[in-house]
């Protein structure tokens, strides 16, 4: 599964993760190219408060611009956007963000399902969704929608994930297009090219 595959065009990468996923992001970020031709959108479960902590942590490891997603903000290639704590992050048809403070999904806000589903609706088959380590049910329904729109499903290898439950669910219930170890993800993302 680890071989480098020439992939189809990519208009956005959305990464979802829960417990144990921060380590993976810290592994990926220093190795990312600085001129990626698509945006990266990150939804990580975390507690409200310490707002800019995750943003700073990632910004210190990459030359890409990392910022917390703001409502109505246009989504631009080469930028990394992080879902703010305690809001769901949605993507509009015109490729801008909306925030939503509705019910938690899978005990989570932001919910990975919400962003995956909304991204699938907009980016359709040129979307790559990556689901990392976690012990929550979040992400599976989102991945199902991504598959329906023919986007690509990428999961962290459950055998090497700190918390295998989340990616394992996708592996067992849907067919993932790529199963990658943490150390393979940066080069995978760097090799995705623009539509």
């Amino acid at each position: 599964m680890a071989e480098t595959v020439i992939t189809q065009g990519c208009s956005a990468v959305v990464i979802g993760g829960s417990a144990g996923s921060l380590d993976v992001l810290l592994e990926i970020f220093p190795k990312l190219d600085k001129n990626l031709p698509f945006p990266i959108i990150i939804v990580i479960h975390r507690k409200p408060g310490g707002e800019s902590l995750l943003t700073d942590l990632l910004q210190n490891r990459t030359q890409l611009n990392v910022m917390e997603a703001e409502e109505k903000q246009p989504i631009k290639a080469g930028y990394v956007y992080i879902a703010p704590a305690d809001y769901h992050l949605l993507i509009e048809e015109n490729q801008s963000f909306s925030l939503d403070y509705s019910e938690k999904i899978n005990y989570s806000r932001p919910s990975i399902d919400v962003t995956f589903q909304s991204a699938a609706d907009v980016y359709k088959d040129s979307l790559y969704c990556i689901l990392l380590s976690g012990s929550n049910a979040d992400g599976l329904d989102g991945m199902r929608t991504v598959k329906r729109f023919k986007g690509k499903l990428v999961i962290q290898n459950p055998d090497t994930a700190i918390m295998p439950f989340m990616p394992q669910q996708v592996k067992s219930n849907l067919k993932a297009d790529y199963i990658l170890n943490a150390w393979e993800m940066a080069s995978f993302i760097n090799n995705l090219c623009k539509v």
Binding site: I91, E93, S98, D100, S102, D121
Partner: peptide
């Protein structure tokens, strides 16, 4: 209304 949100609801 923001389309993505109302569509989801």
């Amino acid at each position: 209304y923001s389309h993505a949100s109302i569509k989801r609801r």
